[in-house]
Design a protein around this nucleic acid. Structure first.
Lengths: 198, 198
DNA sequence: GACGTAAGCTTACGACGTAATCAAACTTCT
DNA sequence: AGAAGTTTGATTACGTCGTAAGCTTACGTC
């Protein structure tokens, strides 16, 4: 029943990289990104801060793990035969949903880029459903995918960022952001669907 | 010869909010965002860190001032009679240029949103050159402007962010980012130019 | 039980943001 | 000229942070 990778003795671990990642995300959700500290993550796991360094080289790597965990959650199955720009739009909406589930964590995506492995995985899901050929080249799908991704991130940042002097009350409504998002996403996808000169 | 705003006595100021803003940007350019500290900004101005707090309420406000200074630099004159989507594209390119002049400062835009005043100013420059009417409503121009802005920010973040395990050498070339940007921008603007259903 | 090993704990250091208090340098009024 | 008032910068100090170094604990294997 023991998993692969036999233990070769030693004190049993209380935490793991995965537990640390989840705890960090929980701290971000509960206390905000600016209050995230190694000590607080350790506290949540019943462990001293220095214990985390057995599993994570430093704070930045921990945050990168949170980013990858979040982003990987945007992976989705796409029915075969979907128009490639529809697949893009579907991915965009899914990615946005995932980001907005953890608003306080979104700024992390700005400082800690998604790892190439995760990015390739997400792109692969889209490519699996899309039939390349003609004007639909791999380069074009990739550019579209990346463009949708940065649009989603930029838009989510705008939504979760509190304007300098603004209360929550006078901020724009979620419905406004939804409409803005759908309009921009539709424009982007229609633009990619069209055969563009130059 | 004395400028407007008479001094009402008191020790002459060595620094000002503007000087602090410029010094902070210089520190970011020279040492990176993660090495920016009040002490270091003060050092660059020949002043102790605490002196800054006479002109800026806290570090976050200082960073917000940097953001507004940067963003305001993207204001541009647009010849009248320009197609509104061309005006959007011009703004996008200009905004991107401004951001890439200070790569290390770009992540600031993710955490410290542009103030409404600056944003309105930028939008106003576009509206001044565009003739509203028909399908070109103010709402549509505004949505287009905001969509281009978040796309530019997201794209710049992707470009300036060093991938987790990557050297500068194996990173994508500037030319790749240029092509990606132009493709995405063109798609976005063409999409907004088209009359979209829904 | 002794040994090797992996993990958590303790201690410590330098840097950070910033509150509170004090000293200095100007203008204005007498 | 000098006193008063005002604005600015310097000093000191506190709590928190990331994390390096070394120690202790709790396992599997002989």
């Amino acid at each position: 029943m023991s998993a692969a990778g036999r233990s070769r003795g030693g004190r049993p671990a209380i935490v793991s990289k995965e537990k640390i990642t989840m705890a960090a995300l929980a701290v971000i959700d509960a206390d905000g990104l600016e209050n995230l500290s190694m000590r607080r993550v350790g506290e949540r796991l019943g462990v001293e801060a220095m214990a985390l360094y057995r599993h994570v080289p430093n704070k930045s790597a921990m945050l990168a793990a949170v980013v990858d965990h979040l982003t990987a959650g945007a992976a989705m199955e796409i029915p075969g035969g979907t128009a490639w720009t529809d697949a893009l739009a579907g991915f965009g909406r899914r990615y946005r949903e995932v980001l907005l589930l953890h608003p306080a964590a979104v700024p992390l995506l700005a400082t800690h880029p998604v790892s190439p492995e995760v990015a390739e995985h997400l792109l692969g899901r889209i490519l699996a459903a899309v039939e390349l050929g003609g004007a639909v080249t791999l380069e074009r799908v990739q550019l579209g995918f990346q463009s949708v991704a940065v649009f989603v991130l930029g838009h989510a940042l705008a939504q979760v960022g509190t304007p300098p002097g603004g209360d929550a009350a006078q901020s724009a409504s979620p419905a406004y952001y939804d409409e803005w998002f759908e309009t921009g996403l539709a424009a982007l996808c229609h633009g990619f669907a069209a055969t563009l000169p130059t």
